[in-house]
Design a protein around this nucleic acid. Structure first.
Length: 554
DNA sequence: GTATTTCTCAGCC
DNA sequence: TTCGGACGAATTCGG
DNA sequence: CCGAATTCGTCCGAAGGCTGAGAAATAC
């Protein structure tokens, strides 16, 4: 039996560092001692959801229900809870701060499996009152740090800077598994929990892809300007980017299931697509787009929206806004998964399957120069599409991955007047918050658009920035004009102050919370101590935040 | 008791 | 969806 | 060749707008 507290503490540790490697290390340390059901549940909880992706389950507990439950447990009114959550920027943090300081209130510490069970129970309940009662009970059993992560889990996102991909790495590190193997297994079974247990047991290779089990989506990067890609054009195939709903179509004989990007089963919403796909023989998994279809062209997303989320779309709607499935990738055919095959091969298989009908085939073009691409670009625009997509011909299908990103600033560099690089701190090291270039565009005497936000710094630290900039190199890009270092410093400092993202920073939180403390009166007498606790907590945060730019409370 | 409105949650881009 | 910031690994530079 | 400088690949989290479903509250 393992306590949920260990997971909450681990998440606290993950949140406390910005270093990716340290996050992974801490996740691994939390997972390593676990096994079996507990490991399964723990891996899921660490990634922010008690459920496996394929379960398609949600708790349907939202902000309002949580706040009401918290109100009942802490004695604070809803308004105060809301104000605190807004000031801090996180409901879980706010509620945890309002709890009395003592450890778990219940008779025994919360167990991982118990948390799992209760969250599942919440998902099964329909009545709001029942959910709230269950929630109150759970919150009363939990210690503040546990409450923090329970509420975060329920309110949609841990926000500790570690999502599924990072948890995958943690699993790999905990059990000495190969990172790629973990990712593959996760893709194929759709459950980070089972993946963790399989890693521990050395059974990763036993996890196989199954049809009708939702698979993560590979996301591509759209580009606006065809010129950006011209140099590398030969590597890519060009497709239209349709304005619709991304979906995977699983089909075997007459059985068809459509999964949305969040891996929800949306088959019932689009019966005509399911029917069409059922017609041809065979078995396959297609990736494509559900679009509003006007008979010969794609309709707008706005029209399509009215078809969304309908459990059973009425017949009038079906005829008013017909839809179609445009396939642009084939991830499995027959018994064979094709994820690892290059796009070129998958496309060939897709074209073969398209001959059997049942779906529309996304057109593919190849262009070797700017002119060809430009032509296709305007053509696509003509057809009312959103833009173009580029598929690397030799690239496998990597679920959850994003296509190559195009860096805007790379373009910007060509026309920049001044580029500031390599800012050193007083200690001689490269400043921790800098990466790549810190660049600035000169506008008359001023530098504008410094491409960095100096988050995580207190006002005082920002005031010290002038001293931090010890060395400034003017980069070799662009037509550089002579600018005295002092000018750069001064203007840069000025700009940084203006662009600094302080809205969620501690400097702002402090006075807002104080205001709440002054204005609000707790319902019961004994909650006065709670107020003191909030106060002390704030002061503790202040000390922790000082002189530590890498503190998470940025 | 049934019909309508409001609130809350969720899911899509 | 799109966007910017951040980390760490990979690659290139400079002596 | 080596350490420092620079670039690249990835990940995370935030933002805004629209719609339906379902339960609860209210009207009739």
């Amino acid at each position: 039996m393992s306590a949920y507290r260990a997971l909450a503490d681990a998440l606290e540790g993950v949140a406390a560092t910005r270093s990716k490697l340290v996050k992974i290390e801490r996740l691994a340390a939390a997972l390593a001692p676990l096994a079996g059901e507990e490991l399964v549940a723990a891996a899921r909880l660490l990634s922010g959801s008690p459920f496996a992706e394929w379960e398609q389950t949600v708790t349907s507990v939202g902000w309002a229900t949580l706040a009401r439950s918290a109100s009942a447990v802490t004695g604070w009114d809803m308004e105060t809870i809301g104000a605190s959550a807004r000031a801090i920027g996180d409901l879980g943090e706010a509620i945890a701060l309002m709890l009395p300081p003592e450890e778990a209130h219940g008779p025994a510490p919360l167990q991982i499996l118990e948390v799992d069970r209760r969250l599942r129970a919440l998902a099964g309940m329909r009545k709001a009152a029942q959910k709230q009662a269950t929630l109150e009970d759970l919150l009363r059993r939990a210690s503040p740090v546990e409450v923090r992560y329970l509420v975060k889990t329920l309110s949609g996102g841990l926000r500790v800077g570690a999502d599924l991909a990072t948890v995958e790495e943690g699993i790999a590190a905990a059990f000495g598994a190969d990172r790629e193997a973990v990712a593959r297994a996760h893709r194929d079974c759709g459950d980070i929990g089972d993946t963790a247990e399989a890693s521990r047991a050395g059974r990763l290779s036993e996890i196989r892809f199954r049809l009708f089990h939702p698979i993560g989506f590979m996301l591509a990067s759209p580009i606006e300007n065809p010129q950006d890609i011209v140099e590398e054009l030969p590597l890519f195939a060009v497709e239209d980017k349709f304005d619709g709903i991304r979906a995977h179509a699983h089909k075997s004989g007459s059985r068809v299931t459509l999964f949305s990007r969040t891996l929800d089963d949306v088959t019932a919403q689009f019966p005509e697509i399911a029917l069409a796909l059922a017609a041809p023989p065979g078995q396959f998994l297609l990736d494509g787009e559900i679009v509003a279809w006007t008979g010969d062209r794609v309709g707008s997303f706005f029209r399509l929206q009215r078809r969304l989320g309908r459990k059973v779309p009425p017949a009038e709607l079906l005829s008013e806004i017909p839809v179609a499935f445009i396939a642009y990738d084939c991830l499995a055919s027959g018994e064979t998964p094709l994820f690892e095959r290059p796009w070129r091969q998958r496309r060939a298989e897709l074209e073969r399957l398209a001959q059997g009908g049942g779906f529309l085939l996304s057109p593919v073009r190849r262009a070797s120069d700017a002119a060809g691409l430009e032509a296709y670009f305007s053509e696509a625009r003509e057809r009312g599409n959103e833009g173009l997509m580029f598929k690397r011909e030799d690239s496998p299908y990597q679920a959850g991955k994003r296509g190559r990103a195009w860096r805007k600033w790379k373009k910007a560099l060509a026309t920049l007047d001044v580029v500031v690089t390599a800012v050193e701190q007083g200690n001689g090291k490269r400043a921790g918050m800098l990466s790549d270039y810190t660049f600035a565009v000169r506008d008359g005497d001023r530098l504008v658009n410094i491409g960095k936000a100096y988050s995580g710094l207190t006002d005082e630290e920002i005031r010290k920035m002038g001293a931090v900039f010890r060395k400034i190199t003017v980069a070799r890009y662009g037509p550089v004009r002579a600018v005295a270092p002092e000018v750069v410093l001064e203007v840069a400092f000025d700009t940084i102050q203006k662009s600094s993202r302080h809205k969620s920073g501690f400097a702002l939180r402090f006075p807002r919370i104080v205001r709440i403390r002054e204005d609000k009166t707790p319902a019961e007498a004994d909650t006065v101590e709670t107020v003191e606790e909030i106060w002390r907590g704030i002061q503790g945060m202040d000390r922790a935040g000082n002189g530590e730019p890498n503190d998470r409370r940025e």
